[in-house]
Design a protein around this nucleic acid. Structure first.
Length: 511
DNA sequence: AAAAAAG
C-alpha cells in the first residue's frame, strides 16, 4: 500500500536536508537524539546545522496547507513507491502537515518555547536534557502555540515523545487552579506510572500536582465512592479507571484543556480500548474546548484514516513505515528445528552471551507460554522473572522495580510491555514467538513487532533483536515483516553455533 | 492472545 503522505496534498512538499541525528547513529556515540547531555561534541554541531534548515522549512507558508518534509538528502520529495532507495532508511524524515495559518518555527533550544523558569529548571537539572530532540523541536511549538491545535504525532521509538506531551501538559495547566486540567490516557498501568514519574521529575519545581488513575493494589483498595474528588492539575491513567472516576463525578472534566493519548493508535483502534477512549473524548469535549494530542510510533493506514477524523483540523506529523525501524538496532532471525530448540538457543546462546552486555526482554504471545518458558529456563538454572496482566498489581510493580533497579537481568513478558516501556539498559529483545494479528495464524502484527523491538535501542543506543523461528509459518511471517519495513533481517547460522551468535552481537556493537 | 474494569 502506497504511503499517501506526499501526494495527498495539492501543494508541493518542501524538502530540506535534516539532521544526522535521526535513528542513524554515528557508530561510536551512545545517543542519537541529542536531548540528553551527550559526551560527543561534534554531533552537537551537525545537529545545530540541521536545526537551522528545519526552521526555514517550517516558516514557509503556503496559503492553506503547509507540507514540510523533514527529509535528508533528497532535493525533492520521493515519488511514492519509487525514488527513495531502501538503503537510506536510516534517514529519518518526518512529514508535517499543518492546519490553519499559524506559522511554527522549530525549537532549537528549550528557551525558544517560552517555558516557565521552573519548568526549564526541571528540564535541565532533573532531566539533564540539553536541547530538544527532533520530534520535540518540531512538535512542541505546535503544541504550545495558540490556538492550541490538536496534534497527531508519530515518531520513532525512543525518540522522546513522552517529553513532548509531558511538557505540553505541564506548561498548559494553571497551578493555582485546584482542578484537573490535563489528562493522559495510557494502555497499561505500567506506562501510566512511568509517564507519571517523568512528569513529576520534569515538573518538580512547578508546584503542579499530579495523580495516577489506575486500579490500586488489593492491599490498599478504596472504593471509588469513598475517595475524594481529584484536585490535582494533571491526571495520568488507564481508560477503565479514568472512565470510572468520571462516572462517579470524582474526576471533573470541566476544566480539562489538554487531553493526551499515549500509544494513540492502540487506544483508538483496539477493541476494548476504543470505546472507552472515544467516550472520554466525548465527555470532555461536551464540557470544555480541549486540545487533543495523539502520540505513537505507529499509525497504520487504517488507523491513521480514523484518527485524522477524530482530530479534525489538527496538525499532523508522520513518518514512513520504511523509515521506522531504528538503524542502531540490529535484527536477526534464528531457524530452530523445534520449540525445544528455542529454549536452548535462549539459554545456551543468547543469554549466556547477552548477560554481559545488558538486560533482555523476551516476548511471548500468551500468559500461559510465559509461564511455560519461565519454568523451562528456571529448570535449566537460569534466573528470570515474568510479568503479565494476571499478576496482582503489587507483584507487577515489584517485577518492574527489580528490573529497573538492575536486580534482574532477564524479563519474560507478554505484550503488556510491548509498548512504551523505557529501560535504557535493555539492549536485547527476543521474540520467542512473532506477533500475529488477533484471530489469525500467519498475518503479522507489524505495529506490535515494531513496538517490541523498540524496547531495545532507547535513545539511539545499540541493540540486538533475535527472532526465533521454527516452522514455515513463522518463516513467512518473518518474511512479511522484513518486506513491510523494508529491512534485511540477517539469519544466524547455524542456529546452535556459539560463534554465529558472537558474530551477531559483535555486528550489533554489543560485544 | 493481551490489555483495561473491582464493571
Amino acid at each position: 500500500m502506497a504511503d499517501s503522505t506526499n501526494d495527498a496534498s495539492p501543494t508541493p512538499a518542501v524538502t530540506v536536508p535534516a539532521s544526522e541525528t535521526g535513528p542513524a547513529v554515528p557508530k561510536e556515540t551512545k545517543f542519537s537524539w541529542g536531548d540528553v547531555v551527550d559526551e560527543s561534541p561534534n554531533e552537537e554541531v551537525k545537529e545545530a546545522e540541521a536545526e537551522e534548515l528545519n526552521i526555514k522549512s517550517l516558516t514557509i507558508d503556503e496559503s492553506k496547507k503547509k507540507i514540510n518534509d523533514f527529509a535528508d538528502d533528497s532535493e525533492e520529495p520521493a515519488p511514492d513507491g519509487s525514488g527513495r532507495r531502501l538503503d537510506d532508511a536510516e534517514d529519518s524524515s518526518i512529514t508535517a502537515v499543518t492546519s490553519g495559518d499559524t506559522p511554527y518555527s522549530s525549537a532549537k533550544t528549550f528557551e525558544d518555547l517560552n517555558l516557565s523558569a521552573e519548568l526549564l529548571k526541571g528540564i535541565y537539572v532533573e532531566m539533564k536534557f540539553q536541547k530538544p530532540s527532533k520530534i520535540q523541536a518540531i512538535s512542541l511549538p505546535m503544541i504550545l502555540t495558540p490556538p492550541h491545535k490538536d496534534l497527531i504525532a508519530q515518531a520513532h521509538n525512543g525518540s522522546g515523545k513522552t517529553t513532548c506531551f509531558v511538557l505540553g501538559m505541564l506548561s498548559r495547566v494553571d497551578p493555582n487552579l485546584r482542578a484537573p486540567q490535563a489528562l493522559c490516557v495510557c494502555p497499561t498501568r505500567e506506562l501510566a506510572i512511568q509517564n507519571m514519574v517523568v512528569l513529576q521529575k520534569m515538573g518538580k519545581y512547578t508546584g503542579i500536582l499530579a495523580e495516577c488513575a489506575i486500579p490500586m493494589g488489593t492491599s490498599n483498595h478504596v472504593p471509588v465512592s469513598k475517595r475524594p474528588p481529584v484536585t490535582a492539575q494533571v491526571v495520568i491513567g488507564t481508560p477503565g479507571t479514568i472512565k470510572n472516576w468520571m462516572l462517579h463525578k470524582k474526576l471533573g472534566s470541566g476544566q480539562i484543556k489538554i487531553l493526551v493519548f499515549d500509544e494513540a493508535d492502540h487506544m483508538l483502534a483496539e477493541d476494548g480500548f476504543r470505546d472507552d477512549s472515544l467516550r472520554i473524548i466525548k465527555d470532555i469535549e461536551k464540557n470544555s474546548r480541549c486540545q487533543v494530542l495523539l502520540f505513537s510510533a505507529t499509525f497504520n493506514d487504517a488507523v491513521r484514516n480514523f484518527v485524522t477524523r477524530v482530530t479534525k483540523d489538527g496538525n499532523q506529523l508522520f513518518v514512513k513505515k520504511e523509515e521506522l525501524s531504528l538503524e542502531a538496532l540490529k535484527q536477526f532471525k534464528v531457524h530452530c528445528p523445534d520449540e525445544l530448540a528455542k529454549v536452548n538457543v535462549i539459554k545456551g546462546r543468547i543469554l549466556e552471551l547477552g548477560e554481559s552486555v545488558g538486560q533482555t526482554i523476551i516476548f511471548v504471545h500468551s500468559r500461559h507460554s510465559a509461564a511455560t518458558l519461565h519454568k523451562a529456563l528456571v529448570e535449566l538454572g537460569y534466573e528470570v522473572t515474568t510479568i503479565q496482566g494476571a499478576l496482582r498489581q503489587e507483584d507487577r510493580n515489584k517485577i518492574i522495580q527489580e528490573f529497573q533497579a538492575g536486580l534482574t537481568q532477564v524479563l519474560i513478558s507478554t505484550d503488556l510491555l510491548a509498548r512504551g516501556f523505557d529501560q535504557q539498559q535493555v539492549n536485547l529483545v527476543i521474540n520467542y514467538t512473532l506477533p500475529v494479528k488477533y484471530n489469525t495464524r500467519s498475518e503479522p502484527d507489524y505495529e506490535v513487532y515494531l513496538h517490541r523491538i523498540g524496547r531495545a535501542g532507547r535513545f539511539g543506543r545499540k541493540g540486538a533483536v533475535f527472532n526465533l523461528i521454527c516452522d514455515n509459518r513463522e518463516h513467512e511471517i518473518m518474511a512479511k515483516i522484513e518486506q513491510h519495513f523494508a529491512v534485511q533481517v540477517k539469519e544466524v547460522v547455524p542456529w546452535d553455533s556459539e560463534e554465529a551468535f558472537k558474530d551477531a552481537l559483535k555486528e550489533a556493537g554489543l560485544l
